[in-house]
Amino acid sequence: LVRYRTISKIPQITLNFVDLKGDPFLASPTSDREIIAPKIKERTHNVTEKVTQVLSLGADVLPEYKLQAPRIHRWTILHYSPFKAVWDWLILLLVIYTAVFTPYSAAFLLKETEEGPPATECGYACQPLAVVDLIVDIMFIVDILINFRTTYVNANEEVVSHPGRIAVHYFKGWFLIDMVAAIPFDLLIFGSGSEELIGLLKTARLLRLVRVARKLDRYSEYGAAVLFLLMCTFALIAHWLACIWYAIGNMEQPHMDSRIGWLHNLGDQIGKPYNSSGLGGPSIKDKYVTALYFTFSSLTSVGFGNVSPNTNSEKIFSICVMLIGSLMYASIFGNVSAIIQRLYSGTARYHTQMLRVREFIRFHQIPNPLRQRLEEYFQHAWSYTNGIDMNAVLKGFPECLQADICLHLNRSLLQHCKPFRGATKGCLRALAMKFKTTHAPPGDTLVHAGDLLTALYFISRGSIEILRGDVVVAILGKNDIFGEPLNLYARPGKSNGDVRALTYCDLHKIHR
């Protein structure tokens, strides 16, 4: 019993810090008490220290592992850092350059016999395009090294910054494609005289377009951006097909006994025919423009016929181009109408809503002055909100995010209106959640004399007048207030005048 009563005193000691020596009952000389009392004092002292730490809000209350900052290894790049964003855009520009100039170089340097010394005699450094290609190869190699040090988000939505895990993730992902696209074939085969082989191998750079397509997928929600990307894709495919079309004609031209190829026909049409040795002929500019003209006309199913396939190889390629053109029509131009419709969806919704308003007016036989006010209010409210119901949009977000959005939407009023000066951010967040926005066209009466005042109004834009009878008592403008002081009276009061809008007004109100 003594032991039980001794232990039962522990909660009292913990909360009230009572010393055991003052209790005459606990001072009985028993061996059990002498053993338990020192333990009680020690526990009391420890609990006292913990309570003191909690009340003082000291940093040592938290466990040590929670006080440590997340460790980022040296030379690790955050995937959302500004440097990584700028670097990704730079790589994107280099990939676009590669997609345009690599097929052009591979096709127009394929057994090209233009006048001038061969590239091997001039030297590697004197070729501007080769120098640019070398810079692109170096940048792609540097990009691989950067990807080995860039964080990523795993399946659990955690940012991984450990170098080993980053390397394994990159090896399992895009490393092989990036490595093949970054191989400097110019340096590996330079001086061997195989410019045709170098041009063909350099087309491996186009593998990076797969990554670019995935990154550009984030802009699919913007109709104008999608339309622009589709047109660029169409032009890029036409450019690639033009390079292939020229390569076919250029390879067949020296081996044909009869002059029936499209390059021969082009030379005869523009007065620059090929001679018996295969030299001469149109310039590279004429060849490229004509090839691009043929691919565009074939892809769009126009086909004027002034550039036509004559050999079997050219006919087979033309059939493939027609098939590609039909697929592009289905996948690209078939979506253009939907994209344009999405661009004008706001206008369509406006006309639909206006039609419903006019049908309501016609069905209920609203008189002319009231009908005009109804239409003007709808037009003004639509121009202010673009038909978007803010309350319906915010309803799907958590309250903390709703408060931040409301604070942002009402920031101008909260910053410049005098009653809100000096208020804490928590108070402003709470008030912003209570605001209701209303609009009024010129001549609209917001409050009639004798109406119950259940709200306090803040003028965000425009001006109003307060009338008693036919006498203008006051004219209020931006950041002015009218209405009933909230919670100042037990019952809502009545208006002693009319409140009429002089201009288009936007008002925020808080109800009782």
Results as ranks from 00 to 15, higher is better:
residue 322 M to F: 01
residue 144 I to T: 05
residue 121 E to N: 09
residue 393 V to P: 03
residue 274 Y to C: 01
residue 352 T to Y: 13
residue 171 F to M: 14
residue 291 A to H: 01
residue 373 R to M: 06
residue 75 W to A: 07
residue 108 F to W: 01
residue 133 D to P: 01
residue 124 Y to P: 04
residue 270 I to Y: 03
residue 435 F to K: 02
residue 100 V to Q: 01
residue 169 H to Q: 11
residue 228 F to W: 04
residue 444 D to T: 06
residue 190 F to I: 12
residue 111 K to C: 03
residue 73 H to K: 10
residue 175 F to R: 01
residue 232 C to H: 01
residue 83 F to R: 14
residue 235 A to V: 13
residue 419 P to Q: 04
residue 100 V to M: 01
residue 83 F to L: 09
residue 252 E to L: 01
residue 402 Q to E: 03
residue 178 D to E: 03
residue 123 G to V: 08
residue 332 I to A: 03
residue 445 T to H: 10
residue 116 G to Q: 15
residue 372 Q to Y: 13
residue 381 A to V: 10
residue 361 I to L: 09
residue 333 F to K: 03
residue 162 H to T: 10
residue 364 H to G: 03
residue 144 I to S: 01
residue 429 R to C: 06
residue 257 D to P: 14
residue 409 L to Q: 09
residue 160 V to K: 01
residue 338 A to C: 07
residue 402 Q to P: 02
residue 124 Y to E: 01
residue 355 L to T: 10
residue 379 Q to K: 11
residue 169 H to P: 01
residue 228 F to C: 13
residue 224 A to G: 12
residue 241 L to V: 01
residue 124 Y to V: 05
residue 247 A to E: 01
residue 410 N to I: 04
residue 274 Y to F: 03
residue 117 P to N: 14
residue 241 L to C: 05
residue 397 F to H: 01
residue 277 S to L: 05
residue 93 L to F: 09
residue 268 D to H: 04
residue 273 P to M: 01
residue 124 Y to L: 14
residue 106 A to E: 01
residue 345 S to M: 13
residue 370 L to W: 01
residue 164 G to Q: 11
residue 326 S to H: 01
residue 180 V to H: 01
residue 286 D to P: 01
residue 373 R to V: 04
residue 183 I to R: 01
residue 362 R to V: 03
residue 258 S to T: 11
residue 174 W to Q: 04
residue 240 W to H: 01
residue 263 L to D: 01
residue 131 V to C: 08
residue 232 C to P: 01
residue 396 G to K: 03
residue 158 E to I: 09
residue 301 S to M: 05
residue 134 L to S: 06
residue 353 Q to L: 07
residue 287 K to G: 01
residue 199 G to L: 04
residue 284 I to T: 13
residue 75 W to Y: 06
residue 357 V to R: 01
residue 275 N to Y: 01
residue 69 A to F: 10
residue 201 L to P: 03
residue 196 E to F: 05
residue 213 A to W: 03
residue 118 P to E: 03
residue 413 L to S: 01
residue 168 V to G: 10
residue 447 V to S: 02
residue 264 H to Y: 12
residue 110 L to W: 15
residue 159 V to W: 03
residue 404 D to W: 01
residue 94 L to R: 01
residue 300 T to Q: 01
residue 211 R to N: 08
residue 421 R to M: 10
residue 443 G to Y: 01
residue 179 M to K: 01
residue 64 E to C: 07
residue 77 I to Q: 01
residue 424 T to S: 11
residue 322 M to I: 03
residue 167 A to V: 05
residue 250 N to Q: 13
residue 357 V to A: 03
residue 113 T to H: 11
residue 382 W to P: 03
residue 105 S to F: 13
residue 116 G to N: 03
residue 385 T to N: 15
residue 363 F to H: 11
residue 177 I to W: 10
residue 105 S to G: 01
residue 92 L to E: 03
residue 66 K to M: 10
residue 268 D to V: 14
residue 117 P to Q: 11
residue 84 K to D: 01
residue 267 G to V: 03
residue 345 S to Y: 14
residue 336 V to K: 01
residue 342 R to Y: 13
residue 289 V to I: 15
residue 294 F to I: 01
residue 114 E to C: 04
residue 145 L to S: 01
residue 305 G to D: 01
residue 135 I to S: 03
residue 190 F to R: 14
residue 226 V to Y: 13
residue 67 L to K: 03
residue 235 A to L: 09
residue 195 E to N: 07
residue 208 R to E: 03
residue 338 A to W: 09
residue 120 T to Y: 06
residue 337 S to R: 06
residue 122 C to E: 01
residue 155 A to Q: 07
residue 291 A to N: 01
residue 278 G to Q: 03
residue 352 T to C: 09
residue 289 V to T: 01
residue 112 E to T: 09
residue 192 S to R: 14
residue 88 D to Y: 01
residue 291 A to T: 01
residue 129 L to V: 04
residue 141 I to C: 11
residue 361 I to Q: 03
residue 436 K to Q: 12
residue 350 Y to G: 01
residue 204 A to E: 01
residue 161 S to R: 08
residue 78 L to G: 04
residue 127 Q to L: 05
residue 288 Y to E: 01
residue 216 L to G: 04
residue 276 S to Q: 11
residue 127 Q to K: 01
residue 219 Y to K: 04
residue 258 S to R: 14
residue 65 Y to Q: 14
residue 102 T to L: 07
residue 160 V to P: 01
residue 366 I to A: 02
residue 388 I to G: 03
residue 113 T to V: 10
residue 257 D to M: 06
residue 434 K to M: 04
residue 342 R to C: 04
residue 238 A to P: 01
residue 356 R to L: 10
residue 164 G to A: 13
residue 357 V to E: 02
residue 380 H to F: 10
residue 362 R to A: 07
residue 431 L to T: 02
residue 235 A to E: 01
residue 197 L to A: 04
residue 96 I to A: 07
residue 256 M to G: 14
residue 219 Y to R: 08
residue 307 V to L: 01
residue 254 P to Q: 15
residue 215 K to H: 01
residue 335 N to G: 03
residue 196 E to K: 14
residue 74 R to E: 04
residue 244 I to C: 03
residue 356 R to K: 15
residue 133 D to E: 15
residue 386 N to F: 06
residue 215 K to P: 01
residue 194 S to F: 15
residue 436 K to D: 10
residue 426 G to T: 04
residue 225 A to Q: 06
residue 336 V to I: 06
residue 68 Q to N: 14
residue 114 E to T: 15
residue 446 L to Q: 01
residue 323 L to A: 05
residue 415 Q to D: 10
residue 136 V to M: 03
residue 99 A to L: 01
residue 103 P to I: 01
residue 322 M to V: 04
residue 178 D to C: 01
residue 64 E to L: 14
residue 227 L to V: 11
residue 409 L to S: 03
residue 223 G to V: 04
residue 112 E to K: 11
residue 150 T to R: 01
residue 397 F to Q: 01
residue 426 G to A: 07
residue 220 S to I: 09
residue 379 Q to I: 15
residue 165 R to A: 14
residue 350 Y to M: 04
residue 162 H to G: 09
residue 379 Q to S: 10
residue 290 T to N: 01
residue 158 E to Y: 04
residue 196 E to S: 13
residue 232 C to V: 05
residue 381 A to M: 08
residue 89 W to H: 01
residue 384 Y to C: 06
residue 204 A to P: 05
residue 87 W to S: 01
residue 299 L to T: 01
residue 386 N to G: 12
residue 405 I to H: 02
residue 418 K to G: 09
residue 404 D to L: 02
residue 379 Q to G: 07
residue 436 K to R: 12
residue 232 C to E: 01
residue 235 A to N: 01
residue 381 A to R: 15
residue 449 A to N: 08
residue 447 V to W: 04
residue 209 L to V: 09
residue 193 G to E: 08
residue 278 G to R: 03
residue 347 T to K: 03
residue 346 G to Q: 11
residue 264 H to I: 01
residue 385 T to Q: 15
residue 109 L to P: 01
residue 415 Q to H: 08
residue 207 L to K: 01
residue 283 S to P: 01
residue 125 A to P: 09
residue 441 P to K: 08
residue 335 N to D: 03
residue 260 I to K: 05
residue 277 S to Y: 01
residue 120 T to Q: 07
residue 423 A to M: 06
residue 364 H to D: 03
residue 206 L to W: 01
residue 430 A to H: 15
residue 90 L to C: 07
residue 425 K to E: 15
residue 328 M to R: 03
residue 205 R to G: 01
residue 369 P to I: 02
residue 237 I to D: 01
residue 268 D to F: 09
residue 230 L to N: 14
residue 443 G to K: 03
residue 165 R to P: 05
residue 447 V to E: 03
residue 290 T to P: 01
residue 250 N to P: 01
residue 126 C to V: 01
residue 221 E to Y: 05
residue 269 Q to C: 02
residue 260 I to Q: 04
residue 121 E to A: 14
residue 81 S to V: 01
residue 429 R to P: 01
residue 140 F to R: 01
residue 309 P to F: 01
residue 359 E to V: 01
residue 175 F to G: 05
residue 220 S to V: 09
residue 111 K to W: 14
residue 398 P to K: 01
residue 444 D to V: 07
residue 224 A to H: 05
residue 230 L to S: 05
residue 337 S to A: 10
residue 78 L to F: 13
residue 123 G to W: 15
residue 401 L to H: 03
residue 154 N to A: 11
residue 284 I to A: 03
residue 276 S to E: 09
residue 252 E to I: 03
residue 267 G to W: 01
residue 225 A to M: 04
residue 328 M to E: 03
residue 66 K to S: 13
residue 229 L to K: 01
residue 258 S to G: 14
residue 211 R to H: 01
residue 98 T to Q: 01
residue 347 T to C: 04
residue 73 H to L: 05
residue 334 G to Q: 08
residue 408 H to L: 03
residue 215 K to R: 14
residue 397 F to P: 01
residue 258 S to H: 13
residue 141 I to H: 04
residue 76 T to K: 01
residue 397 F to L: 08
residue 439 H to W: 01
residue 368 N to V: 08
residue 219 Y to C: 13
residue 300 T to D: 01
residue 291 A to I: 01
residue 374 L to Y: 01
residue 361 I to C: 06
residue 198 I to R: 10
residue 97 Y to C: 01
